[in-house]
Simulated assay, not measured.
Amino acid sequence: MNSPSLDRLCIHSITTKPWSLYEAVPRYAAVGVKGITVWRQALEGRDPRGAGAFIRDHGLSIVSLCRGGFFPALTPADRLKAIDENRRCIDEAAALGAPLIVLVCGAVPGQSLDESRRQITEGIAAVLPHAAAAGVKLAIEPLHPMYAADRSAVNTMAQARAMCTALNSPWVGIAVDVYHVWWDPDLEAEIKLAGRNGTLAAFHVCDWVFPFADMLNDRGLMGEGCIDIRTIRGWVEAAGFTGFNEVEIFSNRLWQTDQTDFLLRIKQAYLNCT
Rank of each mutant, 00 (worst) to 15 (best):
G173Q: 09
I227K: 02
A149R: 06
A158Q: 14
Q111W: 03
R56I: 01
E141T: 02
K34S: 15
A126P: 08
E115R: 12
A213G: 13
C226F: 06
D78M: 04
W39S: 12
E248K: 12
S3A: 14
G32E: 03
I124Q: 03
N272H: 12
R87G: 02
K137F: 05
R88D: 05
I191H: 10
R27H: 05
E92K: 15
S5Y: 13
L96D: 08
A269I: 10
N86D: 15
A24Y: 01
N272F: 13
S64I: 02
L143S: 00
G106L: 04
I266G: 02
I191G: 11
I101D: 05
A93E: 14
L113S: 10
I55D: 00
G106F: 03
N272E: 13
A95N: 13
Q159E: 15
A94G: 14
A162G: 07
Q259D: 13
N245K: 10
W255H: 03
W183Q: 09
R49H: 04
M163W: 02
A194R: 07
T231P: 04
I266V: 07
V136E: 00
V172L: 12
E23N: 02
C273P: 03
A42F: 09
A133N: 13
S61H: 07
V176E: 12
W208Y: 13
D261M: 12
L263I: 04
N252K: 11
W255M: 00
R27D: 01
S5A: 12
L43G: 04
P72E: 05
A189R: 05
C89G: 10
C89M: 15
I227W: 03
L74D: 09
C89I: 13
Q259R: 11
Y270E: 02
A77Y: 09
M157N: 03
L216R: 09
R196A: 10
W183L: 07
L167A: 08
Q41S: 08
R79Y: 00
V209K: 12
C273M: 08
H130M: 03
G123H: 06
E237Q: 04
C206A: 10
I191W: 05
K81N: 01
T156M: 08
P211S: 02
L143T: 00
Y28V: 03
A175N: 11
A160G: 05
D91F: 00
L65R: 14
S13V: 01
S251N: 15
P76F: 03
V172W: 06
T260M: 09
E44S: 04
F54H: 07
Q256K: 13
A162I: 01
E224M: 05
Y28W: 06
L187E: 03
G220N: 05
N197A: 14
G110Q: 10
D261N: 15
G32M: 00
V178K: 11
E190V: 02
R117M: 02
A160D: 04
E248N: 09
S116K: 14
K34F: 02
W183K: 10
A139K: 06
N197C: 12
L60Q: 06
L200M: 05
E92H: 13
A149F: 01
A162Y: 02
L6N: 07
R67H: 11
P211T: 01
A201F: 14
L216N: 07
E122T: 07
A162R: 06
E190D: 12
Q256G: 15
A53N: 04
C105M: 09
A107E: 05
C206I: 01
D184A: 02
V178R: 05
